[in-house]
Design a protein around this nucleic acid. Sequence first.
DNA 1: TAATCAATTAGGAATCAATCCTAAAAGAGG
DNA 2: CCTCTTTTAGGATTGATTCCTAATTGATTA
Lengths: 120, 120
Amino acid sequence: MTRQRELIYRIVTAAPEHRTAEEIYDLAREEIPSLARGTVYRNLGLLVQAGQIRKLEMDGAPARYDRDPLTHPHLICQRCGRVEDLTMPEALLAPLAEDLGEPITGYELKLYHICPACRG
Amino acid sequence: MTRQRELIYRIVTAAPEHRTAEEIYDLAREEIPSLARGTVYRNLGLLVQAGQIRKLEMDGAPARYDRDPLTHPHLICQRCGRVEDLTMPEALLAPLAEDLGEPITGYELKLYHICPACRG
DNA sequence: TAATCAATTAGGAATCAATCCTAAAAGAGG
DNA sequence: CCTCTTTTAGGATTGATTCCTAATTGATTA
């Protein structure tokens, strides 16, 4: 485990923020100024593959990273892009999956709103 | 309404397929060979804005376009990317939105599976 | 039908997040 | 400290999408 990967992991998991790779890159360079962008992307990918964090694709905006690797819905501000985690009663989704008669390998539920800060 | 936009609209709405801009571009050029890629993107954007079709962002793959502009969940094959429309009992989602005490402006639910064709 | 003005097009350049490449540097294990 | 493997920095590249511009088309009114 290199210094770089540890730092990147720490930044993603330290706060509930769902940061973009660029934001993580900026924060990480405060500690390792020589850090390369490619290193951030590669390590984020590895951490996702290892199931330690989660990648959230963002509809026409850079992806964000979630410290919680478990599947759960997100509440997303349409204006500023801020993401909040939601806890989903699994029971809610189960009936839908059953109706399909198809094995579901995963899901992604995004709810959109305008966050209090953006409502002004 | 130009020939180009009409053609693009026709291609998206004629079939239940959820095609990418590139696929639409290829199909459209069978009828208007001089059609430019930029024209496809611009018109798709305008049709989305007009609420006539819907854009589906695809997690690390080119976006796809849905002839049904109304919000509904999608069933997506993880291997080949094929998309199927689902009909969502609105009742299922309502309780979630209520719990938030926040006005929800929209949602996006994607269910993932391996489609029969890819299962082989 | 012609004149006019706005909207749209083709074509290509530019953007931007993300990936890939390579030689150099750092971890891990003995 | 030696060797071998992994990882890094830095920059080039990719690929979907957007943007730019001059030329064309469409719609409207005369």
